[in-house]
Design a protein around this nucleic acid. Structure first.
Lengths: 204, 204
DNA sequence: GCCGTAGGCGTACGGCGTACTCCTACAGCG
DNA sequence: CGCTGTAGGAGTACGCCGTACGCCTACGGC
């Protein structure tokens, strides 16, 4: 009997993501999203209770783009977890400005839970269960979350490496030296290198 | 020749942290901090260029409270890294509402760099160097950062576990089962359990 | 005693989230 | 056919926010 809704929450999310991708996270506001959709600011409240819920939709949109289907059953479990981690990293990297949101709203996201479910499945097949599995999931979750953030809201465009290089060498001998040898290592090696350390610790 | 400053940046930071601890991160504003110090809102701008810099001071204050001196030289390196991780975790946990700030501003914090310097020293003594050390530091950094966040801005007060428990069991079999077995595991076991996985992977 | 800087306060602007009101358009019921 | 209830859409308004700017006062070293 009611008049049909003319927008879906998904369309709201897409508009919000468009604003974020184009103008940065700071530009995200009820007003800018409404403008993006060609409607009045208050119109948004027909679809969403408040700004917080809008942000949740953004996260769902971003995480919803990562494939949560279990990868190639033939491969060793470590490799399959690497694939899952890489998918999440790639999905988030497609909207780097939204990274802070994905962290704060992840726990309410169905898409995030689907990712966890698949990882848990892989861990189970690897023979890890009970308390060990809880710890393993949290560890993976923690590492992936943290590493992705370091990658994206770390020192913008190598500014940080410059800061470190400018440090007084006598008080920070290891850091300055490490900064020099860090040049040869790309983001991929860093991310997956660290992940493999964790996976190695999980083995046996 | 000039009139001496009547406040230090440290006092600003302390006032801001007091506001955050008492009323939450959302209550942090130039106006509330000024009120905390008994001065006019604009007075803050004598000590700080903008809100961003104030937030930086908060982070410096929080991270400055963690002891960065190398721990007990006698202990095995893994244990010493655990001590460093625990110190950081404890320092941050003293001001849980400030956690989001510590993440976004960490790379500009001297105290954060001191922590990294000490950890690098321990890694070096453990015989890890060159590219391996770079990856190891980033991995530790990523894990600790991520795990601390999961702990503090995870589902507020077990709300998340309830969400998971309410999940359709047929679509999330592992998650629902894991949620049940997660009850017996406290935050400490989770944090250090995950960390030890990483350290084990680092070994040899 | 003078000068220059810090202190301190008030005003003002533009943007934010959002509460509230008022009218219009339409889908299914009788 | 018309009635009714919900969605659409616009507009106004409030109380926050960060912060630009200006004005006078206090005071320490030359």
């Amino acid at each position: 009997m009611p008049r049909p809704r003319s927008l879906t929450q998904g369309q709201l999310a897409a508009a919000a993501v468009a604003v974020i991708d184009r103008d940065g996270l700071a530009a995200l506001s009820m007003r800018t999203v409404a403008k993006e959709l060609g409607m009045s600011p208050m119109g948004l409240y027909r679809y969403v209770a408040d700004r917080d819920e809008l942000e949740g939709l953004v996260v769902e949109h971003v995480l919803g783009s990562v494939d949560a289907t279990p990868p190639a059953a033939g491969a060793p479990w470590q490799e399959r977890i690497e694939i899952m981690a890489g998918r999440l990293r790639d999905g988030v990297a497609a909207h780097p400005e939204a990274v802070p949101l994905t962290v704060t709203h992840r726990h309410r996201s169905l898409a995030g839970l689907r990712w966890s479910e698949t990882v848990l499945g892989i861990l189970t097949e690897a023979g890890i269960d009970g308390g060990r599995r809880v710890v393993a999931l949290r560890a993976l979750h923690g590492y992936v979350t943290g590493a992705i953030q370091l990658e994206h809201l770390g020192p913008l465009a190598g500014e940080g490496t410059a800061v470190i290089a400018a440090l007084p060498e006598d008080r920070f001998p290891h850091l300055t030296e490490t900064a020099r040898s860090a040049g040869g290592i790309g983001p991929d090696e860093e991310f997956f290198g660290g992940l493999r350390l964790l996976l190695r610790g999980l083995g046996d």
